[in-house]
């Protein structure tokens, strides 16, 4: 077991969103892949500064929505028209119009399921513990500090180089996070 195995990653603290954004751009341009930015509130433009691609959650939401819409139609057609025909207000047993409001709600419900579970799957959640939560300094992330964290697993990670990079990027506090 070498020293790096005891560490989760390296953490750099910033005071403003602008400084964090500039640091994120530097880290991105160095080609790091296993790293993240943590902030007390969403920062506009951060995904671009981090070089993040469009999230794949949309596919889950779309799939969920499509299942909800067509599944809803199928359900209504089966129940009200096929299995037990029910005449309501002299309307056709099955009509795209009367079933639409329900299918529309089903679309939203299943799209929401899709995005929730898609997000959980893609983030490999739920997980019971994260090394950052042990770090006392990191608690400030819910208050007024911003953090760039680069994991030791990153192929480009080098304790000294990465430390220097984050210092150069303007962080006044850089520390190793224990795993």
């Amino acid at each position: 077991m070498n020293g790096e195995d005891l560490h989760y990653g390296i953490l750099a603290e910033f005071d403003t969103p602008a400084a964090t954004m500039a640091a994120a751009e530097k880290v991105r341009d160095q080609g790091y892949s296993r790293w993240d930015v943590h902030s007390p509130f969403p920062v506009h433009g951060m995904d671009e500064a981090m070089g993040l691609k469009n999230s794949q959650v949309g596919w889950f939401a779309f799939l969920g929505g499509a299942i909800g819409f067509f599944g809803g139609n199928l359900m209504i057609w089966y129940m009200n028209s096929f299995d037990y025909g029910l005449v309501v207000g002299g309307k056709p047993l099955y009509s795209a119009f009367s079933s639409f409001p329900v299918c529309y709600e089903m679309t939203i419900l299943f799209a929401a399921f899709g995005s929730l579970f898609g997000m959980l799957i893609l983030n490999r959640l739920p997980r019971l513990h994260h090394p950052l939560l042990k770090n006392r300094r990191f608690a400030q992330v819910t208050h007024d500090k911003f953090y760039v964290v680069i994991e030791c697993d990153d192929p480009r990670y080098d304790q000294d180089d990465t430390h220097a990079l984050l210092r150069e990027a303007g962080s006044r506090h850089v520390e190793l996070v224990r795993d």
């Binding site: 207000g89 002299g90 309307k91 119009f97 009367s98 639409f100 409001p101």
Partner: peptide, 12 residues
């Protein structure tokens, strides 16, 4: 647009 149509279709 759908709601307008739907309400009128439904009330008949």
């Amino acid at each position: 647009a759908f709601s307008q149509y739907f309400l009128i279709w439904n009330a008949n």
